[in-house]
Simulated assay, not measured.
Amino acid sequence: MTEFYAPLLVGSDRRPGELLRTQSVTVRNLGNAVRAWRIVYVSSDSRGELIPASGTVISANSVTDSEPKPIVVYSPSFHGLGGECAPSQQLVTGAEPLDHIQAALDRGWTVTVPDGENLGITDLGPHTFLAARAAGHVVLDLARATHALPELPTPDTGSAPIVLWGYADGGRAAVSAAELHREYAPELDLRGIAAGAVVTDPGALVLFHHRGPWSALALAGLIGLSRAYHHLPLRHVLTEDGLRVVRHAETLSAAVLLEQYRQPLEHWCERPDPWNDPIWRYVLTRESRSGAQAPAVPVHLYHGSNDLVVPIESGNSLFTEYQQRGVQVSWCEYDANHFRTAIDSAPEVAEELAGFLGRSHLGPTQQPSP
C-alpha cells in the first residue's frame, strides 16, 4: 500500500485526468459481484497547479460488461486531514460506509470515489478540507480518469454519462464540481448532481462550531484552507502553541481529531475571532463559498432538519441561491440528524440520479444564466 501511494512529480506535459497508476483491489463487504481498482491520476489544486490525486473505481459485474455504464462520482463526508483515512484505503479495509455506493452499484452504474486533494498520496498533506475549487477539480478529473481506465468499456461517444453525488463536505465537492464543469471539464457529459448537508459557507460553519462539541471541525477548516492557499499567510493568526497543535492535527483522522481537540478555535489563535482577519475573510467569502456560479445541470439538494453538524440553513441558503439564478433545483428535507439522513436518503437520491441519467445531454442553449 505504501508504494502505491508514494508521491510523484507531475510534469507540465501531463493533462488533468491522465492515469498515473492503477491497481486491482478487493473492496471489503461488497463480495465478488464487483471489480475495483485503486488509481492515481492527474488533477489540479486551487491555483491550477498540477498534482497527483488518488481514488477508487468500482464496477458491478454483469452480462453486459461490453457496454459502457453511467458513472457516479461519489464524494463522502470529511474523513480527516491525514493518516490512513483516505476512502480508497478505508474501502479496502472495510471501514468505509457502503450505503451510497451499494445503492449506485445496484443500478449497474460504475462508482468512483475520490480521496480528495492531499489525502491518500503520502507526504503531500494535510488534506485541503473546505477548499472548494480543489475539491471540484479532483472530482471532475476522477471522472476523466475513469473514462481512461482500460479495463472499462469506452463509449463510442468518448464520454459515458456522469452524475455527481456527495454528502456534507462531499456534497460541497459535488456542488463545486458542478459549478466549475463548464469552464474546467466541458467535454464531460454531466447530467446532474445530488448533494446532501452541503457546507455552503465555510465561514458560517467555523463560527457555528468554534466553541461547541464539533470545534475540531473549525480547526480542521483553518488547517485545510491554509494548506490550499499556502501562498497566503493564513497561519499568522495562530499562537506558537497553536502552530505545534496544527503540526499534529494535520496528520489525524476525523475521529481522532474530534476526540483530541475540543477546545474553542480561539484557544489556538492570537485573536478571539480569527475568521474575521482580513486575509481569512477573503478566502472564506471570495474563494471558498458555494453558489458563486450557476450549474448548467439539474441539482437535487437534501438535508436533515435535526442536523447539528451542518445546520439546515446551509443547504437552504444554497437552494434559494440556485433558484434565484435559474438553476433547475429540487429540495428534500428529512426528519433526522446528520448521520441518519445520510443513510435514510440513499434510495431516494439514487432514484433522483437515475432520473438525471435518463435525460439527454444539456446543450449550450439549455444552460442557466450565470
Rank of each mutant, 00 (worst) to 15 (best):
A53K: 01
L30M: 05
V34G: 03
A33H: 09
S66D: 14
I51K: 07
I51L: 13
I71T: 05
R47C: 11
A53H: 02
N29D: 10
Y74H: 15
S75H: 06
P70Y: 00
T64N: 08
D65Q: 11
P68S: 12
K69W: 00
R35W: 06
S54R: 04
Y41G: 09
R38Y: 10
S54H: 06
D65A: 09
G31D: 12
D45M: 03
I58Y: 01
A36P: 00
S43V: 02
S54K: 04
A33Q: 08
R47G: 08
V57T: 00
R35G: 10
D65G: 10
Y41I: 14
V72Y: 06
L30Y: 05
V57K: 01
N32H: 10
N29S: 09
V63W: 08
L30S: 04
A53C: 08
I51S: 02
V40G: 04
I51T: 07
I71F: 03
N61R: 15
L50W: 12
S46H: 05
D65P: 10
D45W: 05
S46T: 12
Y41T: 14
G55C: 02
V72E: 10
V27D: 03
E49D: 15
A53D: 03
T26M: 13
S44H: 14
D45V: 05
W37F: 01
S75E: 07
T26V: 15
R47K: 15
G55Q: 02
S62L: 04
Y74V: 02
S44A: 13
N29E: 11
